[in-house]
């Protein structure tokens, strides 16, 4: 990570780059507003929701293209020196920390349900007055769940996926090393492998979901287990998707000859993010699939 910012004052070379006014931020807000309002309408069966969402998505994509385009232009135009670079490092670190806390909330929910609420629902009092016959076990879909479901095993696809993501962590590190050595061909190839591994991971994940829905009777609505399983792996999958898209952008930029051996924070930021996604998966593998 970046150098510690404790009491040493960071180097200030030259003038700090303050970007020009731009309409992208408000466009971003507007697009989110449309997406959300549209989404709410869709969820509640109000007409017009899909239109709002489509509009929001389009504006969002446009905004991202333009905003990132500007940033890339500024970066390649040499606007960002060491001082700005350090800002990016701090910014990305804290952003990842916020993501960690987001997942912490869901892991917290998982532990609470497993350790506290399901056993409580099977306590003697609970059995006597509310839920006769319910016994504590995990995976559980709760006392109101009728029917049967099978949990997701750990040692099939999930274990394979673990291997895939871990290897992708290795390939992206090799790519980084190649970047620093100026070995562009190695860089491009290993970045490509990283993305490929990510995409395969997602493919397996999708296959696994389909399998859960069609063969295991394991759904989002399958009580505590279904809720935590799908929400945790689902948000993780969403983050992998974002990470893969980010890697793709970086790959295209590498192919276009961007970045220098000593100046490539965009690449590093994405690599950090990718490692973060990796670590979350390890947590998932252990606590959702395995134990």
């Amino acid at each position: 990570m970046a150098q510690s910012g404790s009491t040493t004052v960071p180097p200030r070379q030259g003038r700090y780059y303050v970007p020009q006014p731009m309409p992208w931020p408000i466009m971003g807000s507007f697009s989110l507003f449309c997406l959300m309002l549209g989404g709410v309408f869709v969820m509640n069966g109000v007409a017009g929701g899909w239109v709002g969402m489509a509009l929001g998505l389009m504006v969002l994509l446009y905004m991202m293209f333009r905003w990132f385009g500007d940033v890339i232009r500024e970066s390649e135009g040499g606007k960002y020196g060491g001082w700005e670079d350090l800002s990016f490092r701090w910014g990305m670190s804290w952003f990842i920390f916020s993501e960690v806390m987001f997942f912490a909330g869901f892991f917290g929910a998982l532990f609470w349900l497993r350790v506290m609420s399901v056993p409580d629902l099977a306590s003697l009092q609970s059995n006597t007055y509310l839920w006769p016959g319910f016994t504590s076990h995990w995976p559980s879909a709760g006392p109101g769940f009728e029917g049967k479901f099978s949990p997701m095993g750990a040692w099939g696809i999930p274990a394979l996926n673990t291997a895939l993501l871990l290897s992708s962590g290795v390939t992206v590190t090799i790519a980084h090393w190649a970047m620093k050595e100026g070995k562009r061909a190695v860089l491009n190839w290993f970045l490509f492998f990283t993305i490929l591994l990510g995409v395969i991971f997602l493919g397996f994940q999708a296959y696994e979901y389909a399998h859960a829905y069609s063969d295991l009777n394991l759904k989002l609505s399958t009580g505590a287990y279904g809720s935590t399983f799908f929400m945790l792996t689902g948000f993780h999958g969403f983050h992998v998707t974002c990470g893969a898209i980010m890697l793709l952008v970086i790959w295209l930029r590498c192919l276009a000859g961007h970045f220098k051996p000593e100046h490539h924070f965009a690449f590093e930021g994405v690599a950090w993010y990718w490692h973060f996604v990796d670590v979350v998966w390890l947590g998932l593998f252990i606590f959702v699939y395995w134990l």
Binding site: L113, L121, G142, F145, L220, G223, A224, G226, T228
Partner: peptide
Amino acid sequence: FGTSFFNAAGGGDPVL
């Protein structure tokens, strides 16, 4: 979406 984080019947808990 039918999840049961806070619904006892599904093993969830309002206190969560």
